[in-house]
Computed example of a mutant assay.
Amino acid sequence: MRSILPRLRGFCERLEPWSYLLLRVAFGLMLMTHGLPKMLGRSHGSMADPMAGSVHLIGNVLHLPAAPAIGWFVALLEGVGGLMLAAGLLTRLVAPMVVVQMLVICWLLAPTFPWIDRGFEYPLMLFFTALLIAARGGGRASVDAWLARRA
Rank of each mutant, 00 (worst) to 15 (best):
G10M: 07
A66P: 04
M32H: 01
T91W: 01
G81F: 08
L62M: 15
L21Q: 09
E121C: 06
P50Y: 12
K38M: 06
M51C: 04
L31E: 01
R14M: 13
W107E: 07
A69V: 10
M47V: 00
Y122I: 05
D144Q: 09
V55R: 07
F27Y: 14
A67H: 11
M32T: 10
F73Q: 05
R24I: 00
L15H: 03
S3V: 01
N60A: 13
L31F: 13
V80Y: 08
S3N: 14
V94F: 04
M39D: 00
Q101N: 14
H44Y: 10
V104L: 13
G119W: 09
P68A: 03
P37V: 02
P114R: 13
E13C: 03
A67V: 04
I58D: 14
K38A: 01
T33S: 12
N60G: 04
G71F: 03
P50K: 12
F11I: 10
V143D: 00
L23S: 06
L62C: 03
R136N: 13
S46N: 15
G138A: 05
F113C: 02
P68Y: 04
P123Q: 06
M102E: 11
M51Y: 08
F128N: 08
P123I: 01
C12I: 12
I116C: 01
W18A: 11
A134S: 11
L147N: 00
G137C: 09
V94G: 04
M1C: 09
S43Y: 07
M84C: 15
S142V: 01
L21D: 01
Y122W: 12
P37F: 04
Q101S: 10
F113R: 12
F11D: 03
R150D: 05
N60F: 08
